[in-house]
Design a protein around this nucleic acid. Structure first.
Length: 267
DNA sequence: GTCCAGGGTAAGC
DNA sequence: GCTTACCATGGA
């Protein structure tokens, strides 16, 4: 596991480096501090019960990500480099409501801007869980807000999307625990019913909340890489079962200064 | 000042 | 089925 990589991978917005080798994460109504002891060894500041019952699952610790890398063809130099730089990256199993709302907000925003908006939502409408720390709001907490209160968090034109989706989910339409039982195609269709959710946002929710590793959300960065490296077409057949993980490697490496510099030289 | 960001929607063809 | 204009906001 490489926590620094995960925290900055653009799949989560409430995990932040806090000092030298320490990160703070707010999820499941808890504040978790993780400290890197050495190499691959991390210390979770929580009870054994919370680690076993929540965080083990949250960090998807039962999956062997090294094994997934073996599917990358040796002649694919882009993905080989992405795998090299992305060693220790994992796909989180985040909470569905927070993930759906966060990625509705994400459209046409930079990652720092998404973080800021999500932090404001939590601070203003979420429950306080530690001094100066706030949980992401429950659906009912967001649904109770007037549109102007959301707008004041910098959501812009996404405010009505967020409010309407929060109201639907607060009303149990759909019930999120039911969604988890659907197959990929049905889940995609159900998520796309929500206002402000299209294929891309739904794909992010499927991948980063429901652990559907075949979901392959295409944003501007992924499309750019596919255009620059793969001639506009990227077949997923070699990566059945974990294409979304490959997507995340592409996203992280495609945005890295190393790759951007290489592209610049090519002209 | 211009351009761009983990896009979706509705109108037009 | 497929394009296209438009939607707020902040940072580079």
């Amino acid at each position: 596991m490489n926590l620094g990589l995960i925290a900055d991978s653009g799949q989560c917005f409430r995990m932040q480096q806090q000092g030298h080798q320490a990160w703070e994460l707010i999820a499941h109504g808890r504040l978790l501090t993780i400290t890197r002891e050495a190499g691959d060894i991390y210390c979770f500041d929580c009870s054994q019960a919370d680690f076993d019952g929540i965080w083990h699952h949250y960090f998807d610790l039962d999956r062997d990500y090294e094994q997934l890398l073996t599917s990358i063809p040796g002649e694919d130099h882009f993905l080989q480099a992405a795998a090299q730089q992305g060693r220790g990256l994992r796909i989180l199993r985040q909470e569905p409501f927070e993930t759906i709302i966060s990625f509705i907000i994400s459209q046409r925003k930079t990652i720092p801007a998404i973080r800021r908006a999500v932090a404001l939502l939590a601070q203003r409408f979420g429950s306080q869980i530690a001094p100066g720390r706030y949980a992401f709001p429950q659906a009912a907490q967001l649904a109770a807000q007037p549109l102007e209160a959301l707008q004041a968090c910098g959501l812009g034109y996404r405010s009505p999307y967020v409010l309407h989706t929060a109201r639907l989910i607060a009303a149990g339409q759909p019930a999120l625990d039911t969604l988890a039982c659907l197959d990929d195609q049905s889940l995609m269709a159900a998520l796309c019913q929500l206002p402000g959710v299209g294929k891309k946002v739904a794909g992010c929710a499927m991948l980063f909340a429901f652990a559907r590793l075949d979901a392959f959300p295409r944003d501007v960065w992924i499309n750019r890489v596919i255009a620059e490296v793969y001639g506009g077409h990227f077949p997923l057949d070699p990566f059945v079962g974990h294409g979304g993980f490959i997507q995340q490697l592409m996203f992280c490496y495609g945005r890295s200064p190393e790759y951007r510099k290489l592209q610049e030289q090519k002209g």
